[in-house]
Computed example of a mutant assay.
Amino acid sequence: MAQNVLLTGGSGFIGSYLTNLLIGAGFTVSILSRNKKENTDTVTYYKWNLDKDYIEEEAVLNADFIIHLAGEGIVEKRWTKKRKKAIIDSRVKPIDLIFSVLEKNNKKLNGFISASAIGIYGAVTSHKVCTEETPPADDFLGTTCQIWENASEKIEKLGIRTVKIRTGIVLGKDEGFLKKLNPSFKSGFGAALGTGKQYLPWIHIEDLCQIYCKAITDDQMHGPYNAAVTDNTTNARFSRLLASLYGYAIWLPKVPPFVLRIVLGEMSKAVLEGQRVSSEKIQRTGFEFQFTDLEKALISCIH
Rank of each mutant, 00 (worst) to 15 (best):
I211P: 01
C209H: 02
Q290I: 12
V75Y: 03
G71N: 04
E156C: 00
K81G: 03
Y246R: 04
L193Q: 09
S16M: 04
Y54L: 12
K296G: 07
N20Y: 04
N232L: 05
E56F: 03
L158V: 02
I211N: 01
K84C: 08
K269T: 15
S30D: 13
K164P: 00
V163L: 02
L141I: 00
K81T: 14
L109W: 09
F289C: 01
L69Q: 12
G15M: 05
L32T: 11
Y199S: 02
D293W: 01
A117G: 13
V60F: 05
W79Q: 08
L298G: 06
T285M: 10
D207M: 04
E149G: 02
T285P: 08
W251V: 13
L264F: 15
Y121P: 06
P257H: 09
G196M: 02
G190N: 04
T80F: 01
S116A: 13
I113W: 09
A192S: 15
Q290K: 15
S90F: 08
V277F: 10
T233A: 08
H68Y: 07
N62C: 02
A59W: 05
M221G: 11
Y17S: 06
T143W: 00
G9D: 07
K269R: 13
N62I: 00
N235T: 05
K93A: 05
L208P: 06
D174H: 07
T80R: 02
Q275S: 14
K197W: 00
I120N: 00
S90C: 10
